[in-house]
Design a protein around this nucleic acid. Structure first.
Length: 923
RNA sequence: GCCCUGGUGGUGAAAUUGGUAGACACGCAGGACUUAAAAUCCUGUUUGCAGCAAUGCAAGUAUCGGUUCAAGUCCGAUCCGGGGCACCA
C-alpha cells in the first residue's frame, strides 16, 4: 500500500464534511479558545500561494488547541463589500452581487482543497442583508450615543438630552471642532436656551455630540474613484487602491468620533499581546503629545493668537510666530502694506496640490506685518504665515523657537530673522538643538533652570495669568465613515428638513436597491442619488466604508444566524475575546484600530463584556513573487537572454513564471502565451534562453502568481501545508520558491513507510517499545509542543523529520510510538494523520484524541560537560536539559550516568538549579 | 531625518533563559539496487592546513572594540538590507 495522497485527501475532506467534525457547539464542558483569521476580500483573482500562509498557521493552532482539550472556535467568512467589485461592475457591467458570489465560490473551492478545520456553518458575508442588518444596527447605536468625558464612556444620547434640559451644556462642551454643522459651532447654552431651541437646532446640537455624526469637513476626495477616502486609504497623496490623485475637498460626510477614544486606544495597547512594531504603528498614528496652549496678544489689534506647543519652557526664545495660511486670523491682522504679499502667498499655497506639497518641502512664507507680544517680557514678535504650519493640528498656529527647533531654524535663516539663543553653549549658532536638558539663559525668570523642569513652571505661571493651559493633542482625526459609492451598507438614516433621523429598528435591514448604473450622483453624491425611489424616501445616499462590516465580524461568528440581535450576550460572554488573531500588518492603522474602537463603544453600552477584541495578534509575513523577465531588443520582436543583454538596448518585460523552469524560458510556451510573441525570435546563450529575476509583491499583473491548486494537485494538501510552514518563520516575508518541496513530500512518504510496506503490508506491531524508541518519541513531543505554542512551525516540521529519520533507522513500527506521533502530526498534516489514525483501528477523528503527555524521564541522558572557573579554580559543569519538577529533577540527576561517573569517590562540590529548566551540577 | 527590525555555508534556514555553531531541508558530488529509468537507500558537503585513513589543528555568525570561565546571543561604535512614519510644533 503506497501513500496515495490524492485519494486519501479527497476521501477525508468529504468524510469530515459529512460527519460535521468541525462543527463547534456554543457550549461544552471544555475551556474555550477562539482562533481567527482576518477574513479575505474575495477578489476576482482567487487565491495565490501567499494567501494561505496565515490560514495554515491558524489552522495548525486551532487543531492543536482542540487536541489539548479546548472547545475551539475557528470560523471563516468574507469581507464582501468594497470598491474593487464596484469598479469591476463599472468596467464589465456585471452586478457586484453576481461577481462577488462567483468569487466567493472560487475562494471556498480553493480553501477546501487545503483541508482547513473551519466551521463553515458559521460563515459570514458582510454584503448579506442578514449580516449588514446588524452593521446598520450597531451604526444606530453609535449614532444614538455620545461620549461622556466625565465618565469616560460611551453613553446613550437620551442621557445627554436630559442633561441639557437640566443644566445646559456648560459642563459638557462640544467635543471637537473638526467637522461641524456650521450653524451651531461651539455654542454654550443654558437649560432655558435648550428648551427654547427649535427642533432643528436641537438636532443640530446633538449631531455635534454623537459618536457617529454627520458634518462638513475637508476630506480626501478621489476624483477617479468618485469617492472620499479615509486617511489610512491615502498613501503619499494618492489612493491606496489604484494610485489615483487625491485632493482636499469640503463635503458633507459621516464620521466616527474615534478621537474621543484616543487615550483608551493607547492605554489598551498595554493589555494586548501585539508585536512591538504593531503597537508602535498604532501609537504613532494616534500621535499623542502633551504640551500647552498659550494666548499671545497682537499689538495694535484687538485680537490674540492661541498657539499649541510641547515646549512652553522655550517661550523666551520665540523670535517669530507662524500661522497656517488658512488660519481665520490671517485676514484680520495683516497690515495694509503686507496685504498684497500675503494674498499672493495664499494663492500660491492653494495652487499646490497635496502631492506637490509632500514631494517638495520648500521653505516659503509671508510676513503679515503684525506683531504679537511675549506675555512675559512684552517683546514684539513678528507674525508670519507659512504652509509648514498645518491648519488641522493644534490651533493652526505656532510660536517659533529657532534655537530649539530645526524647522523654525531653517525658516529664520531663510528669511534672515534674528535668532535668540536661550541654550547657552548648547546652541552652536548654525543648527537648532531640540534638547530638553540644557540650562536656560536669556530667559528672564527661568534663567539657570533645566529646560525639562521649566515646562511645568511655565505652565503654572500661564495658568495663573489666565493666558494658557495644559493641553493634550492627537494627530489622529475622526474617521470618515461615508463613501459616495453603491457597493456598501446603506445608512439607516432619513433626512427630514435637513435633519438626520435614525430609521426605526423594525425597518432594518435597509436593503441596498438593485441598480443598472453605478455612475456617481450629482454634486459628489453616491449612485444611490440617481434612484428616484430612494431619494423620494429621503434616505441617505452615501454608503458605509469597507471597514464597517469588518469592525465587528468577530462577534457575529459567535452567533451567526441570530435574527433578533447582533450576537446574543450569552454567547459573547462564553467566547469572549479572540485569543489568537492572525493576519497581515497592512491593517495596523485601519481595521485593527476601528474594530478596537467599536468594541470599546459596545462595551460601554453594556452590549458585550470585554473592551479589547483581540488578545493576541500574530502577523504573518508576505509571500512574495519571484518575477521573471525577458529582454526585448528595442524596436524588434527579438529577445536576448539575460546574460547577453548588456550588448543591446532592451526593455524588460514580465513573463509568466509558470512558463519558466528555474530561469530557463520555455520558448514554445512563450510563443503561444500571447499573440504578440507568436513570431518572437531569440538570442540564446549556450542553447538556452535565461530570464532575469526579481522579487516583488505577488500580483496578477506581474505574472508571478502561483496558484495553490497546482501545488496541491501535484504534492497534496499535507505537503503544501507543511512546506509553507517549513519555508521559515511565519512572521517573515519570503519569496515563493518550490525548490524544497520535494524534501517535505519525501518526509510524508517516509512516515507512511513506518506504517506500510508495499510487499509486507501493514507493519504496525503491538509490542512494547524500547527505551531508545520512547526517547525519540518524548523528545519529539516536547519539541512539537514547545514549537507549536510559540508558533515556530518551521522548526516543528524539522523536528518531525528528525523523528521519522530516527524511527526509520531504529526500524520502529510499534504502536506505542507511532500512535502518539500521529496525534502530534494531526495539526500539521491532517489528512495523512487521519488516515493513519483510522488504520490504527480508531473510528473517531484524531482531533478528539488527547495530546500525548511528555515524560521527562526518557530525556535525562542529554547531559553536556563544560569547563567553568569558580573562584579561580577550574571545575567541570554538567548541564542537563529537562523539564520536570525540582524534586524529580534532583532524583533524575542523581541517577544520571554522567553524574554518577563524576561522583565516583568524590562528592559533589555544588548542586545548583538554574532557571527551572536547566540543571547545573558542578563537580 | 526619526522609530522598529534584521545581517549565520552554494541556497531556505536552526541554535527557547549566554553553554562551546550550521539541526532540518534543498542543491551538488560520489556510491548501492536496476538491462535502463523512476522510486528508494548510503556516504560526503563552513573554510584553510596536515594525513592513505579514521582523524587532528587553526579560523569562522556584517565590521571594530568590550563584559564573561564561556558571546550568533549581552554592551558600545560603524557599515549594509527590510518595514513603518514623515513639516504633528
Amino acid at each position: 500500500m503506497e501513500y496515495n495522497f490524492r485519494e486519501l485527501e479527497k476521501k477525508w475532506q468529504q468524510q469530515w464534511k459529512e460527519d460535521g467534525v468541525y462543527k463547534v457547539p456554543n457550549q461544552s464542558g471544555k475551556p474555550k479558545f477562539y482562533v481567527l483569521d482576518m477574513f479575505p476580500y474575495p477578489s476576482g483573482a482567487g487565491l495565490h500561494v501567499g494567501h494561505p500562509l496565515g490560514y495554515i498557521a491558524s489552522d495548525i493552532f486551532a487543531r492543536y488547541k482542540r487536541l489539548k482539550g479546548f472547545n475551539v472556535l475557528h470560523p471563516m467568512g468574507y469581507d464582501a463589500f468594497g470598491l474593487p467589485a464596484e469598479q469591476y461592475a463599472i468596467e464589465h457591467g456585471v452586478h457586484p452581487a453576481v461577481s462577488t458570489a462567483k468569487n466567493i465560490a472560487t475562494f471556498r473551492d480553493q480553501l477546501d482543497k487545503i483541508g482547513f478545520c473551519y466551521d463553515w456553518s458559521r460563515e459570514v458575508n458582510t454584503s448579506d442583508p442578514a449580516y449588514y442588518k446588524w452593521t446598520q444596527w450597531i451604526f444606530l447605536q453609535l449614532f444614538n450615543s455620545w461620549y461622556n468625558r466625565r465618565s469616560n464612556r460611551t453613553e446613550p444620547i437620551e442621557g445627554l438630552v436630559a442633561l441639557f434640559e437640566k443644566e445646559g451644556n456648560a459642563a459638557h462642551p462640544v467635543p471637537n471642532a473638526q467637522y461641524l454643522i456650521p450653524a451651531h459651532a461651539g455654542q454654550v447654552f443654558s437649560a432655558a436656551d435648550w428648551s427654547a431651541f427649535p427642533e432643528s437646532t436641537k438636532q443640530g446640537i446633538l449631531m455635534e455630540y454623537r459618536v457617529a455624526y454627520c458634518g462638513y469637513g475637508e476630506v480626501n476626495w478621489c476624483e477617479a474613484l468618485g469617492t472620499v477616502l479615509a486617511n489610512d486609504e491615502v498613501v503619499n497623496g494618492v489612493s491606496e487602491r489604484g494610485g489615483y490623485p487625491v485632493v482636499k475637498k469640503k463635503l458633507r460626510q459621516w464620521y466616527l468620533r474615534i478621537t474621543e477614544y484616543a487615550d483608551r486606544l493607547l492605554q489598551g495597547l498595554e493589555t494586548v499581546d501585539f508585536s512591538e512594531a504593531m503597537k508602535e504603528m498604532q501609537s504613532n498614528w494616534i500621535g499623542k503629545s502633551t504640551g500647552a496652549e498659550i494666548r499671545f496678544e497682537v499689538r495694535d489689534a484687538s485680537s490674540s493668537i492661541v498657539v499649541y506647543t510641547t515646549r512652553p519652557d522655550t517661550i523666551f526664545g520665540v523670535d517669530f510666530m507662524v500661522l497656517a495660511p488658512e488660519h481665520e486670523l490671517v485676514a484680520k491682522i495683516t497690515t495694509a502694506d503686507q496685504k498684497e504679499a500675503v494674498n499672493e502667498y495664499i494663492g500660491y499655497v492653494k495652487s499646490r496640490s497635496e502631492r506637490e506639497r509632500m514631494a517638495e518641502k520648500k521653505i516659503s512664507g509671508a510676513f503679515t506685518g503684525a506683531y504679537a507680544l511675549n506675555p512675559f517680557n512684552g517683546k514684539p514678535i513678528p507674525v508670519w504665515i507659512s504652509e509648514y504650519v498645518l491648519a488641522g493640528y493644534g490651533t493652526g498656529a505656532i510660536m517659533a523657537v529657532p534655537s530649539g527647533d530645526e524647522r523654525d531654524h531653517k525658516f529664520a535663516s531663510h528669511f534672515n530673522l534674528p535668532i535668540t539663543n536661550i541654550l547657552g553653549d548648547a546652541y552652536n549658532g548654525s543648527e537648532a538643538n531640540p534638547t530638553k536638558d540644557a540650562v536656560l539663559s536669556n530667559s528672564g525668570f527661568l534663567d539657570g533652570m533645566v529646560m525639562r523642569d521649566a515646562i511645568d513652571v511655565v505652565i503654572g505661571k500661564l495658568e495663573e495669568m489666565g493666558i494658557g493651559k495644559r493641553k493634550v493633542n492627537y494627530k489622529m482625526r475622526d474617521a470618515a465613515f461615508s463613501r459616495q459609492r453603491y457597493w456598501g451598507e446603506p445608512f439607516p438614516v432619513k433626512w427630514v428638513n435637513g435633519v438626520a433621523y435614525a430609521l426605526p429598528e423594525s425597518e432594518l435591514p435597509l436593503q441596498l436597491p438593485y441598480v443598472e448604473s453605478y455612475r456617481p450622483g450629482p454634486e459628489g453624491e453616491g449612485p444611490l442619488a440617481n434612484i428616484p425611489e430612494w431619494t423620494a424616501r429621503e434616505l441617505e445616499t452615501n454608503t458605509m466604508p469597507g471597514y464597517a462590516g469588518s469592525s465587528w465580524y468577530f462577534l457575529r461568528y459567535m452567533d451567526p444566524r441570530n435574527e433578533t440581535t447582533f450576537c446574543d450576550r450569552q454567547w459573547s460572554d462564553y467566547w469572549q475575546q479572540v485569543d489568537l488573531y492572525v493576519g497581515g500588518t497592512e491593517h495596523a492603522v485601519g481595521h485593527l484600530l476601528y474594530s478596537r474602537m467599536w468594541t470599546k463603544a459596545l462595551y460601554d453600552l453594556g452590549l458585550i463584556s470585554f473592551d479589547e477584541p483581540f488578545k493576541k495578534l500574530l502577523n504573518q509575513g508576505m509571500i512574495q513573487g519571484s518575477s521573471r523577465f525577458v529582454y526585448r531588443v528595442r524596436g524588434t520582436n527579438q529577445y536576448v537572454s539575460a546574460g547577453l543583454k548588456e550588448g543591446y538596448e532592451t526593455d524588460a518585460i514580465h513573463v509568466d513564471v509558470n512558463i519558466v523552469d528555474g530561469f530557463e524560458l520555455d520558448m514554445e510556451a512563450f510563443k503561444t502565451w500571447k499573440p504578440d510573441f507568436a513570431d518572437a525570435s531569440f538570442i540564446l546563450e549556450e542553447g538556452r534562453y535565461l530570464c532575469g529575476a526579481e522579487v516583488e509583491k505577488m500580483s496578477k499583473s506581474k505574472f508571478n502568481t502561483v496558484n495553490p491548486d497546482h501545488i496541491v494537485d501535484r504534492y497534496g494538501a499535507d505537503t503544501f501545508r507543511m512546506y509553507e510552514m517549513f519555508l521559515g518563520p511565519v512572521e517573515m516575508s519570503k519569496p515563493w520558491d518550490t525548490k524544497g518541496i520535494e524534501g517535505v513530500h519525501r518526509f510524508l512518504k517516509k512516515l507512511w513507510r513506518l506504517f506500510f510496506d508495499e510487499q509486507k503490508g501493514k507493519l504496525v506491531k503491538d509490542e512494547a517499545a524500547k527505551p531508545e524508541e520512547l526517547k525519540v518519541l518524548h523528545r519529539t513531543i516536547k519539541k512539537i509542543e514547545e514549537d507549536t505554542e510559540r508558533f515556530s512551525y518551521n522548526t516543528a516540521v524539522s523536528a518531525f523529520m528528525v523523528c521519522v529519520n530516527e524511527l526509520t533507522d531504529l526500524k520502529t513500527h510499534k504502536r506505542d510510538v507511532l500512535e502518539p506521533l500521529v496525534i502530534l502530526l494531526a495539526p500539521y498534516a491532517p489528512h495523512i494523520a487521519e488516515e493513519l489514525w483510522h488504520q490504527l483501528g480508531h473510528t473517531t477523528t484524531v482531533l478528539d484524541a488527547p495530546f500525548p503527555a511528555f515524560d521527562p524521564q526518557y530525556l535525562v541522558e542529554t547531559a553536556k560537560e563544560y569547563p567553568v572557573s569558580i573562584n579561580g579554580k577550574l571545575r567541570t559543569q554538567i548541564l542537563i536539559d529537562l523539564s520536570a519538577s525540582p524534586e524529580q529533577v534532583q532524583a533524575l540527576v542523581m541517577e544520571n550516568a554522567v553524574v554518577q561517573k563524576w561522583m565516583e569517590g568524590k562528592p559533589l562540590k555544588k548542586f545548583i538549579f538554574v532557571k527551572g529548566k536547566m540543571v547545573n551540577v558542578v563537580v
